[in-house]
Amino acid sequence: MHLLLALLVGVLFAAGVYLILQRHLLRIIFGLILLGNAVNLLVFTVGRAARLAPPLIPEGMTVPPEVTANPLPQALVLTAIVISFGLVAFALVLAYRAYATLGTTDTDALENDAPSPADLATNGRAPADEDAAEASPSSPDPVPSDDLAR
């Protein structure tokens, strides 16, 4: 059981690392999701996953009657899942906004895109039309057509 889980963790890590090395923003986010799951499984596995009784204490007793499974790694993983859910949701919205405002999801193009003069003029004081979380599909910025074709 542990060996299988360890192998799965390794495969997930490898796939995740491969994906975050890609240039496409969505693939990077998929890589983050895989890595997140790999880490969660890792925490679960090193916390001694085994088929044991649930950690419940019967009425009238102060300690469980038999050896129970360790609930703590599950609590940790549950917390980590909730956190990574929130962060991945944010990252997806950000990727969408990057596509809408910058017109590309290619990370190389993101880096090399020099800021336009208008951008410089309003930098830091640009009026915010919408919250990042309330992204609207219509973007005020022009989207280069060659990027749309990808």
């Binding site: 925490v43 990727a95 800021p115």
Partner: peptide
């Protein structure tokens, strides 16, 4: 916040690298 072009561009790098670092941290904790 503000949804400026430069902000979105900077945030992509910031968000992704920090998420990877957090995962390293969590793996270490585990």
């Amino acid at each position: 916040l503000g949804n400026d072009r430069a902000q979105v561009r900077g945030a992509v790098t910031y968000v992704i690298i920090n998420l990877v670092a957090s995962l390293c941290f969590l793996a270490g904790v585990g």
